[in-house]
Write a protein that binds this DNA or RNA. Structure first.
Lengths: 217, 217
DNA sequence: CCGCATCCCATGTGATACTG
DNA sequence: CAGTATCACATGGGATGCGG
């Protein structure tokens, strides 16, 4: 039941024993964004087999990375304080991976949690601090997010109702939004080519979005 | 041949597809410390099967993380510029894993490269900057390292001959050195209990070592 | 229903042997 | 030295079942 080890005594080795097995890092990623129920995790990781999810949850608990939330009627998983310390590492790792992403294949999905982590990785607080507070509503391949930027603070939350929010800019995009964030595509061309479709608000704010969230290879 | 994917389009997912398979992260760790030949990698990862090492080297090359060094007579592997960008992530991940290490089991090994990465993770540049430049010679379970600290700079290299170096402090230790770095054991008790055995130089400098390299849970 | 556990088969991994 | 080849075995994937 314990994760397979490498027979080596070192930091990287230990880290990989804790979160290096298949799917484990993605489970921790989602839990870093908030407590989740078993079904929510399964929904956020559509291709994970249920037996693997169950096994990983046990292993991560045994490793002290996550735990079941105490004094809760229903079963809820959350990161432990030690697991929480993975947060900056996760953001940096996500940024590195983001830079290595090519164009999306048709069958690839984007989940709210993966999108949220990517936004956090691409977020440039120092740039945002120079811009007015802004609320964006984004819909990317089914994932709907409410993105609030205020000074150096970023808050991303999953919202079911996008339309009736007081957003400054609402837009829908395919995974091609990656090209907007990487700078391969400017805001205006993104709209013109249909990569980004403005649903409401001021289309000119897409440039502000691209300045706020930027991660180039 | 390509790494198994997760069917998801996101930074963390991509990162795990690139370096998430078993042994891949350890190979990159070693290559981040310098170019290595196939045999050197195999020696630094004693328990990796040769077919797996060969497979990972191919995959990491296809992923653009490592490459064969150009215009070299012999075959040498090295990180690409993109792979080099993993360095800060690796150090942070190693620090996180280090904090999660318990006491070593008897069969666990320490390699020069794993020890070097742990030292880098535990290195406190801001503390070192306040201390005189110091050269340490350390021998930990067969791994011999020459550790030079000068201001905010850290240089660790593998040296075969430890004795005839102008080191300020030379010591041998078991994996229990982890307790010295984590602060669970002070310098004097470490020497008294035999966890650290001073081979030469000023034993009082072990306190400086413990101040320079510190990583607590 | 939610939170898993079981089953079976495909694939990946490990140990060893072998080769250009 | 730098890998391949082979085969036994462990793990992952997908479907399904089941108890609280």
């Amino acid at each position: 039941m314990a994760a397979r080890d490498y027979g080596e005594y070192g930091g990287i080795t230990r880290a990989m024993e804790l979160v290096g097995e298949r799917w484990a890092m993605l489970i921790v990623r989602d839990l870093l964004l908030g407590p989740r129920r078993y079904g929510e995790l399964a929904a956020g990781l559509p291709r994970i087999p249920s037996n693997i999810l169950a096994a990983r949850l046990k292993e991560l608990q045994a490793a002290g990375v996550i735990r079941r939330a105490p004094r809760s009627r229903v079963i809820i998983y959350e990161v432990t304080p030690y697991g929480r310390e993975l947060e900056p590492v996760m953001v940096a790792l996500g940024a590195w991976g983001f830079k290595g992403m090519g164009d999306p294949r048709e069958e690839q999905i984007i989940t709210p949690d993966s999108m949220t982590m990517d936004l956090r990785a691409a977020f440039r607080a120092s740039v945002a601090a120079t811009l007015p507070a802004t609320v964006y509503g984004a819909r990317v391949r089914g994932a709907e997010l409410l993105i609030r930027v205020d000074g150096r603070a970023l808050d991303v939350r999953r919202e079911l109702t996008l339309e009736d929010r007081p957003v400054d800019l609402a837009f829908a995009a395919g995974p091609g939004i990656h090209r907007l964030i990487s700078g391969a595509l400017g805001p205006e061309p993104a709209i013109e080519t249909g990569v980004v479709r403005v649903l409401g608000g001021d289309p000119g704010l897409l440039g502000r979005f691209a300045s706020t969230f930027h991660l180039a290879a």
